[in-house]
Computed example of a mutant assay.
Amino acid sequence: MTVVSVSMPEELLDRLDRFADEHGYTGRSELIREASRNLLGEFEDAQLEDRDLMAVVTVLFNYEETNVEERMMHLRHEHEGLVASNFHSHVGPHYCTEVFVLEGDLESISTFVGKIRATKDTLTVDYSVMPVDEFGPVDELGHVGSE
């Protein structure tokens, strides 16, 4: 691996070190590599066009004060051809998460995420997208990564 020197203010370096310690990173390099991949990934949509994709979308909301859960159910049914899996979980005394696993093209996934982000009263919406063909070849039994 190539070694790269990076200049940054001491305060930022201290924050990175604390974050790495608190979140179990082995060191600064691992943290910087992951942050770099995440940043670059946000701007590589052109590389995702015309490819089979999978996405994981996570939504957090307060179920006692909203009807977000009902709206998530409607979106799941409205996009049943895109939603491969859906998981609902309670988090703490007042919150829920909805996790959607999507399989489709970039436009369909972007539309779905946009509708979730536009849903009033969601607290956070997070997602990641990955081309299915990056998993490696699939053998005759359907096992990924076989040669």
Rank of each mutant, 00 (worst) to 15 (best):
T97S: 03
L31P: 05
G27W: 12
T122A: 06
D14L: 04
L40N: 02
G27R: 05
N62I: 12
S110T: 11
R51D: 03
S146P: 01
A118N: 12
T58M: 15
V132L: 05
I32M: 09
P131H: 14
A46L: 08
L31G: 10
E80V: 13
T124H: 14
L12Y: 08
G142S: 01
C96F: 00
F100Y: 09
S128N: 15
S128Y: 11
S108K: 15
S85L: 13
G136S: 04
H88S: 07
E69D: 13
D121M: 11
Y95S: 10
F61I: 03
G142Q: 07
E103V: 14
D105A: 04
S36R: 11
C96I: 03
E44P: 01
L16M: 15
Y63P: 05
H77Q: 12
G114K: 06
R37N: 09
E65K: 14
T97G: 03
D139A: 06
V99A: 06
D105P: 13
S5G: 10
A84P: 00
Y25V: 03
P93H: 05
F112E: 04
T2C: 05
S29N: 08
V68H: 09
G92P: 08
L48S: 00
L141I: 00
F19W: 09
G145E: 00
H90L: 09
P93L: 11
L102Q: 02
G81S: 14
L48M: 03
M8N: 01
P131K: 06
L75E: 10
L39V: 08
F100D: 09
F87G: 12
M130E: 05
H74C: 06
D105R: 08
A20G: 06
E34I: 14
A46K: 14
Q47F: 01
K120H: 10
S108M: 06
A118Q: 09
F135A: 12
I32T: 13
S7V: 13
E22I: 02
E11A: 14
D45R: 00
E70Y: 07
P131I: 06
S29T: 14
T26A: 10
A46V: 06
G24M: 01
L106W: 00
R117M: 04
D14K: 15
L12C: 12
E70W: 05
V57E: 11
T66A: 00
G92T: 07
V113S: 00
V6F: 04
T2S: 08
T97F: 05
G104E: 03
